[in-house]
Design a protein around this nucleic acid. Structure first.
Lengths: 157, 157
DNA sequence: CTCATATACTACGTGTACGAAATAAAAGAG
DNA sequence: CTCTTTTATTTCGTACACGTAGTATATGAG
């Protein structure tokens, strides 16, 4: 029981199709999310970053100085989760917190120079991983999958 | 910044398609997994269960008395994660740990009476959630999505 | 039998995630 | 201008999730 357990991916998929039908969809999606996160984590490790850091950086690259609540909204994450992530990002010198001058309840998040520089390196890494995930799947199927994904999200929201 | 933040689901999806293309696929999948987990958690709360308890129970309903490592394999989870989950399931009187008589390294997991009884109630709840997730999506699209999902998992494994 | 190696599981430290409660500042009622 | 209510964020407690290290037991070489 090292890390990845004995069951092969083939067996894994079969089992969750047949034996455990009620959870078939949910668990496979959760599993894919988890697997993708592991892969991405491996690639980010050399930079001392996590997948969560990456998405926060994405938000700030698009628009710097966002309030914490706006980032929460973009990522659809609970406030308490962000606090910890931002704490660690601040420690690692990726971002800087500054109080809004108009509304002192708001803390705005600003990229440091290092946070900004990563924009030159990370996107290529993310793109490669996505391309690997799609693999041989043709463009039409990718779009179809993507649309259905959005529809499921809408159904469950 | 209560719990779900101001950005609407419509805005959410648009943003992750356009603004953050590199992460578009990954983050939406992660988000769906998270969202589904929240919904399922809500439904399991009255029983004092979590989604993880559900999948472990699924494994044991199919075959009772499995070794911890086999459950790890079926769920494709790291051993350390299972230990904690099983600890809590034991405390909640869902399962019982027993040492294998042949190989004393192995701990076999057995359902308690309560763990067994839940088989009558929980599957319907899970099925409802899946059905809600699919919504109006026609059968052909469901299968198509499901196949592509497996393919992506295979590509990234 | 004895030692090295492999296997099954647990323990620990870190990083998400969640809901609920606490804190601080703004905004609105009177 | 006060008092209540709302909003932004943090804090806390619990539950995954991972990699690494540690412990106990089995297995194979000699």
């Amino acid at each position: 029981m090292k890390s990845a357990a004995p069951t092969s991916k083939q067996e894994f998929l079969e089992q969750w199709h047949d034996v455990l039908a009620p959870y078939a969809l949910g668990y496979r999606i959760k599993f894919l999310a988890q697997l993708a996160s592991r892969r991405f984590q491996e690639k980010l490790e050399p930079f001392g970053l996590t997948p969560f850091h990456w998405v926060v950086l994405c938000c700030l690259w698009a628009e710097d100085g966002l309030p914490t609540s706006t980032i929460c909204g973009k990522l659809q994450q609970v406030g308490g989760t962000l606090t910890g992530v931002l704490d660690r990002m601040e420690e690692r010198n990726l971002i800087r917190r500054e109080r809004d001058t108009q509304d002192r309840r708001i803390w705005r998040i600003w990229l440091t120079e290092e946070g900004n520089r990563l924009k030159e390196v990370l996107p290529a890494i993310a793109r490669d991983l996505i391309e690997q995930s799609w693999g041989e799947i043709p463009e039409a199927d990718r779009q179809h999958f993507s649309r259905t994904l959005d529809q499921i999200i809408a159904n469950i929201t």
